[in-house]
């Protein structure tokens, strides 16, 4: 059952305020995912304080690095149900979890951070994990 929009508004804003495109409908997701050129990060946001509380600030810290994705998108699991289902359909071989984070290069998932690798870590650890993945998968694609 979706949560009160009033309650989750700050959680949406935490990502929207740093440049994330909020993908609230299945069509929004298709538009984002079908643009396959370059690099992208898709965050499956969540209300869960046990994990999302580390995910959002971790993502924010990671985006302060020199190498980062070209495009940023987010769906809100448990809230924007069709959008979330459509997003998960693009990586259907990965068990669903939220929060979770997918890094994409030229339309392919190259790195995935499932919930269990967020919930036991600090925001700094999540950021370090993402920064390392940015360097590994996106460095060659970054503009000079």
């Amino acid at each position: 059952m979706p949560y009160s929009e009033l309650m989750i508004a700050p959680m949406r804003a935490e990502l929207a305020s740093i440049g994330f495109d909020e993908l609230r409908t299945a069509e929004d997701v298709e538009r984002f995912m079908n643009e396959t050129e370059g690099t992208a990060m898709l965050v499956l946001n969540s209300v869960c304080g046990c994990a999302a509380g580390q995910a959002r600030p971790g993502v924010r810290q990671a985006l302060e690095s020199a190498v980062k994705p070209d495009r940023l998108g987010t769906v809100f699991a448990g809230q924007d149900l069709e959008a979330t289902a459509r997003a998960r359909g693009y990586f259907a071989d990965i068990p669903p979890s939220s929060p979770s984070i997918a890094l994409l290069k030229d339309g392919e998932v190259v790195y995935f951070v499932p919930r269990h690798r967020i919930e036991s870590r600090s925001a700094e650890d999540v950021a370090a994990d993402l920064t390392s993945a940015f360097e590994r998968y996106f460095a060659a694609a970054a503009p000079a």
């Binding site: 869960c48 304080g49 046990c50 580390q54 979890s97 919930e119 036991s120």
Partner: peptide
């Protein structure tokens, strides 16, 4: 270590185990 946000539950509440 990340803490749970539910003080009435076990410390592993919400954690994948």
């Amino acid at each position: 270590m990340a803490a749970t946000f539910h003080p009435d539950r076990h410390e592993l509440h919400g954690i994948t185990v």
